[in-house]
Design a protein around this nucleic acid. Structure first.
Lengths: 227, 227
DNA sequence: GGGTCTAATATGTATGCACATAATAACCCT
DNA sequence: AGGGTTATTATGTGCATACATATTAGACCC
């Protein structure tokens, strides 16, 4: 009959209907359990879910209240590029434009938590969708985590090698907009200064930093999500 | 004492340690419950959480396996602009530059699901952080949801009026990069063509569309999140 | 071999209970 | 009053059990 999703829906309905106004306190789990005729655990599941979504604020003893200034939480899916392109019905290919060992610029080294002077593997890759430039990837890769012999990144993209072999690391992602530099403009085939959507990712394991990636997307790129 | 977060941590550790490889099946909830000496519900909570994060894939009867090509899920917080600015220790202010009723351009009307010809409230607002341009907001607002007399958007930003009075609607958010147009350039004080970070939001209730907002952020703006 | 039905199975969820924990409210003593 | 201790309370979590549900693997038949 009534599952926790029904309870969640009913609570949401009351909030939307302004039966329970922003900032106001709502009944306790126990009261709601009695009212809906379900166990407290079921109400708990529903309210916890709404709290995770930012709709409710819960504190022990203080009770549960409707968020006054809701910090909306949007969930983004971050697929690997190949999947992203194939999901649009296009064909993914890529070219490794550069592959050398060199010292990273100071900001990159410090963000990775590495002392200056250490050499990293630097890769420049152009991702293509149906043969047209899709994104220009520049990547710094901690060579200590690589096996010997080194994987052949000409045939398997570094990203996919990593997700398959250094699974489940933590990291952060940032999005910005930047004007295309000379190199980016040339590679992507856009005018210098064109507005590019930039994604920067840094990943590390508990022990050591893994990689820093910067993706410059061709114009028209869009990150979208439902709330 | 083992809680569900300890179980989750241990499962994650095994995945990272490649005890359980990408694509491989892991033991059943019951087996894990026995191994860890906890109830199945506790294991379930841990595995469910990892599945929501995209680390595990679960199907009834088929069991639980480590995601082969993990579609990482990143959660973004979307605060109201005032909070965002105040969180940086700056002072928020805003100026309403334009406020009229007019027909929206066709793409806006169609995305809101409105027939052409309907007039909407159009607002142009400049948000300032410590007096400096932070974001230029253009908003189309369904006037049918507004009370009479109309709220004074000169003193309370439309966004905050909405979150306080039309709480908890669904919607979508998109991020793009675009070159500054003439008006945006003038208002934000940047050269025409400068790369701007754009967020577009559309919100609606079950019954009716509410608003379409486009925010053009001043250069340097960054959306960031942990994974 | 191929198609259909059936039983087995792992996850999904509900319940009632218990106790832990955090935060507030009440109390007491000076 | 004021300040610190204690009791109260709502949420957080765990457990054992039960049943629901989706999906698969196997049985069965043609």
């Amino acid at each position: 009959m009534k599952g926790w999703e029904d309870i969640r829906a009913e609570v949401l309905r009351r909030i939307r209907a302004r039966d329970w106004q922003p900032g106001a306190q709502i009944p306790t789990e126990e009261d709601l359990a009695v009212e809906f005729g379900v166990a407290r655990a079921t109400v708990n599941r529903a309210l916890r879910d709404l709290a995770e979504a930012g709709v409710l604020e819960r504190r022990r003893k203080a009770g549960t209240r409707v968020a006054a200034l809701p910090v909306r939480k949007a969930t983004l899916d971050i697929p690997v590029i190949r999947q992203e392109i194939e999901a649009r019905g296009q064909t993914h290919s890529f070219q490794v434009l550069k592959q050398t060992f060199m010292e990273p610029p100071v900001p990159v080294a410090s963000r990775l938590g590495l002392p200056p002077g250490i050499k990293l593997l630097y890769l420049e890759t152009l991702h293509l969708a149906d043969g047209k430039p899709f994104a220009f990837e520049t990547r710094w890769l901690n060579s200590e985590i690589l096996p010997r012999p080194m994987p052949d990144f000409q045939s398997l993209s570094a990203n996919e090698w990593l997700v398959a072999h250094v699974a489940y690391v933590t990291g952060d992602i940032a999005f910005t907009a930047e004007g295309a530099g000379g190199r980016e403009a040339a590679v992507l085939g856009v005018p210098v200064g064109a507005a590019l959507f930039i994604t920067e990712r840094m990943t590390w394991t508990a022990e050591s930093p893994i990689t820093f990636v910067r993706l410059a997307h061709a114009p028209g790129y869009r990150v979208q999500t439902l709330v």
